[in-house]
Amino acid sequence: MSRIAQKFAALKAEGRGALIPFLEAFDPDRETAMAILRGMPAAGADLIEIGVPFTDPMADGPTVQKAGQRGLKAGATVAGALGMVREFRQGDAATPIILMGYFNPILSYGVAKFCADAAAAGVDGLIVVDVPPEEADEIAPDATANGLDLIRLVAPTTGEDRLPKVLSATTGFVYYVAITGVTGTRSASTDDLAAAIPRIRKYTDLPIAIGFGVRTPQQAGEASRIADGAVVASALIDGMLASLDAEGRATPATVPAVLDRVRELAEAVRKG
């Protein structure tokens, strides 16, 4: 059983959903991002999503775009992101890590080499935003061969006719994009989510995580109860941003600023 499947099974036994915080690799610098990553499990992260910066992130709103730009400026590369995971795994063998990014940096690295190196570094799953099911054969064979889960996005626009096609090839968990929009902009209503998730469950037994627009502890708690997990990205980045100095550099307050928010979110997810 994969680390992702094990984690969701354990949480199901606990009777709660997962908190999946996001951080952008090398944002605002490698050392700070590494400290945040290391501190996340103790702060209550059940799974962790790491963004691999790309110059042209077409599904991301301003917050994650700027996080990516800071990451790139700090020297982020695919190899650098994998290096962070490798270092993280030295102290944590249990927390699943999902890399989220766009296809071109992976293509440039080499798809087969990327999947092999990611698995070796301790990555558990991949979300490649701009590879829909129609293009999945670009990466699915190498991901599968290396035991990586390929986590698919389902959107409000994904109709009943497409759901079986999208879901049949998904492994690990399903990522429900809660809004038609980019990251960090608006939020779905509880009613919308309560209607959307059962629609997906008709076609899959996999866990479902909700992302895009999950910002507050209350929203994270609700999402983790309606589905099986909540992904929080922009709200954490915004929290970090407030702790940076005038030149955008990390301060002693940066790592606690993010981890305190993770703690608040984790508490809300655990409240049941």
Binding site: F103, V131, P132, E134, E135, A155, T157, T158, R162
Partner: peptide
């Protein structure tokens, strides 16, 4: 049928746009 010219082209978009 996949929108390819030899190896080029295709439909590399996020799922939200794919149905569109």
């Amino acid at each position: 049928a996949r929108g390819r010219f030899g190896p080029f082209g295709g439909r590399f978009v996020a799922e939200t746009l794919m149905p569109l």
